[in-house]
């Protein structure tokens, strides 16, 4: 009996110490991150001299990202998109900024084989990619029961699975060079849901999960030289969500691009834009489900989504 008691006590003590240690580490880390953020003293890396690949670069956030990376002195920028005319005009804009070399390739990221083929072409013609920005995305939307099956599959292929294919094809060279960064443009709809866009929400939740796993995986392997950033912008004034007539907290694609490049430099893993959306996320996970619905009704977001849905 005494033996049993001592054993239980010992185990309790041991785990108690481990829990205590955990709490100390958690508090310390939180303070550290907070202080670094406030003092803006994160270790910043340079993006000049990098080879950047941006998917969905013909317009919206992708276009602004290309220009922003060029402004920060990226050495080569590769644009992927489906519309060659628009891509070539973005290429011109990028080349006007400075000495950045710009290439563009027609590629539908929803098609796995096409991604692999184009990636091979890029690696042969241009070289190894050191920053990958998975930005391409589509939205079909509409009431769940009226959304077409093909549209649901298309959304998931383009918004989610494409990240797997592109990342799988560039990660080996990043790991062997000991240098690289994978950036995913998700959405705040990847953190909390809204009605009327179930295909989009599902795909963006998956994207957030993918980058979280990828970051954990690289970290578990001790690879701090390859960074992972997941950007979750709120409503952005691009063509994609032009049917959404919301008034509050809209971002311009330029703002998203600036913050994204900043996050890459700081090696930030999770970026939520605008900041207030982080607060919404916290409340969404802290409060009972009916709260979020109430907020949506009161702030009129439900009505906005209703209108958006009706236009689909």
């Amino acid at each position: 009996m005494a033996h049993f008691l001592t054993r239980v006590l010992k185990e309790l003590c041991e785990s108690f110490l481990r829990v205590l240690l955990l709490l100390i580490v958690v508090v310390f880390r939180s303070c550290q991150v907070f202080c670094l953020r406030v003092l803006r003293a994160e270790r910043r890396k340079d993006v000049s001299g990098e080879t950047v690949l941006i998917t969905g670069a013909s317009r919206g956030i992708g276009r602004c990202l290309a220009l922003e990376f060029a402004k920060h002195g990226a050495c080569t920028i590769i644009l992927w998109g489906r519309d060659e005319e628009k891509l070539s005009s973005v290429k011109k804009e990028v080349e006007e900024i400075g000495k950045t070399v710009c290439h563009f390739y027609r590629c539908d990221v929803g098609d796995r084989e096409q991604v692999y083929r184009t990636m091979q072409k890029v690696q042969e013609n241009v070289g190894k990619i050191t920053i990958l920005v998975n930005n391409a995305g589509v939205v079909h939307g509409g009431a769940l029961l009226e959304t077409k099956d093909d549209n649901i599959e298309d959304t998931l292929r383009v918004n989610t699975l494409s990240h797997f294919w592109t990342t799988k094809s560039v990660l080996p060279s990043m790991l062997s060079n000991g240098r690289g960064h994978v950036v995913g443009i998700a959405s705040t709809l990847g953190l909390f849901a809204l009605p009327g866009v179930s295909d989009y929400v599902t795909s963006k939740f998956s994207v957030v999960g993918f980058y979280e796993s990828l970051a954990a995986e690289l970290r578990a392997q001790g690879r701090r030289d390859v960074g992972v950033t997941c950007v979750c912008p709120g409503h952005t004034t691009t063509d994609m969500f032009k049917d959404l007539t919301t008034q509050s907290f809209s971002l311009t694609p330029q703002q998203v691009a600036e913050q994204t490049v900043d996050a890459v430099k700081n090696n930030q893993r999770r970026v939520i834009l605008p900041r207030i959306m982080h607060f919404t996320w916290i409340l969404n996970s802290w409060l009972p489900g009916s709260w979020m619905r109430t907020v949506l009704y009161v702030t009129g977001a439900m009505k906005d989504m209703e209108n958006f849905c009706a236009k689909r």
Binding site: L189, A193, P195, G196, T202, F205, L296
Partner: peptide
């Protein structure tokens, strides 16, 4: 995410 949407729908 889908489940959260479904609730709204």
């Amino acid at each position: 995410g889908f489940e959260e949407c479904l609730r709204y729908e």
